[in-house]
Nucleic acid binder design. Sequence first.
DNA 1: ATCCGGATCGCCT
DNA 2: GGCGATCCGGATG
Length: 217
Amino acid sequence: MTRGAAPPARRARQRAPFPRSFYDRETELVARELLGAVLECHASDGVVSGRIVETEAYIGAHDPACHAAAGLTARTAPLYGPPGLAYVYLIYGMHWCFNAVTREEGHGSAVLVRALEPLEGIDVMWRRRARARRLQDLTNGPAKLCAALGITGAQNLCRLDRPPLIIRPGAEVPDANVAITPRIGITRAADWPLRWIVTDSDFTSRTPPHFFRRPLA
DNA sequence: ATCCGGATCGCCT
DNA sequence: GGCGATCCGGATG
């Protein structure tokens, strides 16, 4: 072995994780401001991270598409808990989805992270997402990004400011590069404009052609 | 005790 | 564009 492994990958200086107060605000605002932020997951095989390019707001018990509409149960307890924690749930018996809980305890709201642009640990992502053909397919859906980052129910209720899960500020995304659409894949409140996307990113999931798309600027 | 539908994905036509 | 996979939470009886 030669002395010294490959130099560490150059990366932008990391900013401090968002504090709890970032999440203790209107869910729509948090969904908007999470665009451009970096979500990272730490595991034994390394750190994997991506830049958030698509989010959805689930705004509480009065939102029929939000799990909190079922009331306070064992499953929805994380939603009703303090802001700044992870709510990770299983969908269709096989896929995990990741949310950041917002607003004060008892509100039942969260932001679903729906797509990332891969940053660190891309080799690990390819291993975890063996069927993906293109780079975009690693993380352009809520369950895909959980698989790529290694997020499972084991991270449910984890804080988002320390390992294994951290969300940090990234380069801000200007309003000119943001659009709002209805949420994907739901049947109730299907027309509520609560999905935020980075319009010039190649890493968002598909927007159905008939969806309206409101530019932010 | 049983039934139903779901914040998805990938493979099929 | 359609559909099956595969399991759980919540509703109903």
